[in-house]
Design a protein around this nucleic acid. Structure first.
Lengths: 218, 218
DNA sequence: TTTAATAATGACTCGTTGGTCAGTTGACTT
DNA sequence: AAGTCAACTGACCAACGAGTCATTATTAAA
């Protein structure tokens, strides 16, 4: 099992690198097992330290959990906001870029455990859920809503409740990302995430256009 | 807190009703807390029995978990299959009926904890995940694929990989159902599930029609 | 080389919880 | 009313895992 024997276990003092390593290890284990079933000992081992060390950097298990959630997503969101602020181009292209951006994050196997984790544990950590909702969900929606607004103004998107449309736009991405880190193992190869997302974006963009064609809703 | 004092705790022997009551209680607690964090004692209490009684009906916690998953969904799926077998009507109407059926199940707050539970715990219970995939996912897809096939045959649906289209069709429903039992609390009122599903179905059906309009994908 | 400061360890404690079982009590038979 | 069966109970046990802390090892400064 453990074939670390040859490489000397070389205990090292690396105050600077530990937090990030612990966070990465914790994200893996939390995503695999869920909060309760994740053992601090496993997280520590995967980060290459002993359990006691974890408590040197995080007050307790819950604090570690919070830190994982907070640090994994926020930078990406901020990047998206920055990009949107400076780009004033074609709303349709911008919308596709937004999808690509979301998917760059959600599609990353490293990060795709986060949504599943948040959903699964929201009931046990109302404060974390509230924080995530405010800092991730709301901001993510705002990004979408802004692009949609510009598109409607130019007449290239049809109108509609932005929150609803955003949910409509993102739920397949979120779902495939949750799927991959849960039933993905059983379902291997059935659906290629990239192809799936591409198909969804095409379909969504078509549905977002003003009803120019003959068919009207019943 | 506990104001059960007045009503006599009346211990009763009810062999027949216990399993269903335990299953219902277990579903609630598992869905709220996740597998590991759910205490057998809570489940028992919520079912109105003592912890020991649980073990009279289920060998252990894992067996109870399996039973919850298995009994909650299968009957509905079977009903859907039966309905499809006898109805030979218009594929478009049938497809809308399928959505309505899925949503009748997924939209039920009682049952909506199941998908979240399965996703969250798939990593900890590979056998349960495999079972669910085979007995629920595959059969659910088959239902969709059959209707899609009929629609393509009559030329009212455009062609495409049925598995992919099915995922596209269902992921918003699944997502909103998972959402409701996780971040739904924070997000109360932001999106009405029924309206959301309605919007999705309309949009999806429009996307499923053959490309009769001028716009083609670049 | 010696010393001081502190990063890291791992054996320990202690609360929690899955699972057991000897005893209790409700319901049915005679 | 007495007897019998088994559904039900709850005190108990053992395992497990979060969190502690006295000790050890590493690094940089003196």
């Amino acid at each position: 099992m453990n074939t670390d024997a040859p490489s000397l276990p070389a205990r090292r003092r690396r105050k600077a690198e530990r937090p990030a390593e612990l966070l990465a290890a914790a994200l893996e284990v939390f995503a695999e097992r869920g909060y309760s079933a994740a053992r601090l000992d496993d997280i520590a081992r995967r980060a290459g330290v002993s359990k006691g060390t974890v408590f040197l950097y995080y007050a307790n298990k819950q604090a570690l959990f919070r830190a994982v959630i907070e640090t994994a997503v926020l930078p990406h969101l901020a990047a998206g906001e920055a990009l949107l602020a400076q780009d004033e181009g074609d709303p349709e292209a911008l919308m596709r870029a937004l999808f690509a951006g979301y998917w760059r994050v959600l599609g990353d196997p490293q990060l795709s455990g986060i949504p599943k984790l948040v959903m699964a544990e929201a009931g046990n950590f109302p404060e974390v859920a509230a924080y995530y909702h405010e800092q991730v969900v709301m901001r993510g929606r705002a990004l979408f809503a802004e692009i949609h607004r510009r598109g409607v103004a130019r007449g290239v998107f049809r109108e509609g409740d932005p929150a609803l449309l955003c949910q409509l736009a993102l739920s397949p991405l979120l779902f495939v990302c949750v799927w991959r880190s849960s039933l993905g193992g059983c379902d291997a190869g059935a659906i290629e995430p990239d192809r799936f997302v591409e198909a969804h974006v095409d379909m969504f963009m078509r549905g977002l256009m003003p009803a120019a064609s003959a068919r009207s809703s019943s």
